[in-house]
Amino acid sequence: MFEQVMTGTVIAATATALLRIGLRKHPLCHVDVAQLLMGLGMIAMYLAPSPLMAAPFAVFGCWLGFRAARTRTISFLHHAIGSLAMAYMFAGQQTGPAGAPLVAVGHHHGTVTVAAQTPGLVLPLLAWVLMSYCALAAGYAATDLLRTPPPRARSLIELVLSGSMAHMFLAML
């Protein structure tokens, strides 16, 4: 039951991010694009997981990383880490035998087959660090819910997506 609720909240958060972009009167913000891309990636992970899906997240994450270095903005860095975490998660998936024993891992986006040795999650310490970072990001977004004025949609979307990412990493480890 928990898995279905998590999946439903990710779909709702992604739909909200898409709606925010559609209703936006100002130029696009990297936060909205990053949240939409991450939500779509999580949905894609449920529907058609493929290691090839790591590419757009790696490219977007690198672009955000360069923007973070140029502007010295923590928001760019945060979303770069999130995009690269998604790339790492997609890269760790296997859609078929790759010469190594495969292990089926269940998480809230369905069962994902991860290589037991290589090329799966070859750096479990990195996965633990990314899981911890996502959990802290979810906690930080949750604090926005306690502030006045009422929480913004971005904070709710961030809470759902970061919490889901932390859960996915934990389930894959």
Rank of each mutant, 00 (worst) to 15 (best):
F66R: 09
Q117G: 07
A171M: 15
K25D: 11
L146A: 12
P51K: 04
T9N: 14
V114F: 05
M6T: 08
I43G: 02
V112P: 02
A98R: 05
V160I: 14
F76R: 00
S155M: 06
L170C: 07
W63G: 02
M1Y: 04
I157R: 03
L121F: 09
A142S: 15
L19G: 00
P51Y: 01
A68D: 03
L123A: 12
P151T: 15
P51I: 01
R24H: 08
T111S: 12
A166R: 01
M42G: 01
T143N: 06
Q94S: 14
A142R: 07
A138T: 08
Y88L: 00
G61S: 02
L84R: 02
S164E: 06
V59W: 11
L40P: 10
T7K: 13
W63A: 08
A54C: 10
T143R: 14
C134E: 05
A142H: 01
F2A: 09
L136Y: 11
H79I: 00
M168E: 07
L52A: 15
S155W: 06
L136E: 03
T148S: 04
P101G: 10
A85K: 03
K25N: 07
G82L: 11
E158D: 14
M165K: 01
A48E: 08
Q93D: 06
L36Q: 11
S75R: 07
G39S: 10
T111F: 13
A54H: 04
A171R: 09
A85M: 05
A141I: 03
G120K: 00
M38I: 15
T73V: 09
T95W: 03
G163N: 03
L123M: 12
S164H: 06
L52T: 05
T71K: 12
S50F: 06
V10M: 07
T113A: 10
M38Q: 12
A142Y: 08
L159M: 15
H108A: 08
H78Q: 15
M131R: 13
A17V: 05
L156P: 01
C134W: 00
A48W: 08
L84D: 07
A55Q: 14
V10Q: 05
